[in-house]
Amino acid sequence: MGVRGAFATLIGALQSVVGLLTFILAYLIYYNPDILRVRDILNIQEGYIPFFILTLAVVSLFSIISGLLIIYEWTSTKEDKDEKDRI
């Protein structure tokens, strides 16, 4: 794997992980479990909860999609190169 490809895959994976963690945070804000009172830790007022959840959910889904696109871009580029080498 080339340096550019490895770097792109790393960034894509990191962005997907950030998206996943953001989604988990949104879910924890919604569920607010007894063992981890996220709303208290983040000082989130009751009226702002839907706003936080919606924003975090949108950002997280976007991050996951963007991260996967980058990984896809690299992998398919590598496949095209392999195909060219075979020819």
């Binding site: 960034i11 990191l14 962005q15 980058i70």
Partner: peptide
């Protein structure tokens, strides 16, 4: 991360 991801997405 987001800046680099943006560059990589556009540069493909």
């Amino acid at each position: 991360i987001f800046l680099l991801a943006g560059i990589l997405n556009i540069a493909g």
